[in-house]
Design a protein around this nucleic acid. Structure first.
Length: 130
DNA sequence: GTTGAGCGTT
């Protein structure tokens, strides 16, 4: 008999075995969205798409440009098909040099409307828990 | 003409 408790939160239904559920903080959500920083100001979207396409299927590449000047802000976002490819590309291209500058890749924060973006920089990233 | 850590335009 499984009881569905809809309290607005996600309840994991475990079997009769008393398994202590560890609270995985959603500070490092391995989303398919990837935050790519440290980009050169001459890097465009097609360059990132070609660079990250080797590690997985890139569905969308978005580079932040300045509205006033029109130049790139030096960071962008890479959308992968799955979080697996995103993590693979992150672990592969993070810290590597790209067009003369080292890349700073991390998982992008989910854009929540009506709520400020919380940067889990002080939180421990226990993503390699497998 | 410049700058260099970061979390974004629907």
């Amino acid at each position: 008999m499984a009881m569905l408790c809809s309290f607005g939160r996600i309840f994991l239904v475990r079997p009769a075995a008393a398994i202590p559920l560890r609270f995985y903080c959603a500070s490092s959500p391995s989303n398919s969205k990837l935050f790519v920083g440290g980009l050169s100001w001459t890097v465009d979207e097609k360059s990132l798409h070609d660079a990250f396409s080797s590690f997985g299927e890139v569905t969308e590449v978005r580079i932040m440009y300045d509205k006033g000047s029109g130049r790139s802000r030096g960071f962008g976002f890479v959308y992968f098909a799955t979080a697996y490819e995103a993590k693979c590309a992150k672990e592969a291209m993070d810290g590597k040099a790209f067009l003369g500058r080292p890349l700073r890749i991390s998982f992008a924060l989910e854009k929540v409307r009506g709520a400020p973006v919380v940067v889990p920089r002080l939180l421990n990233s226990e993503e390699s828990r497998n």
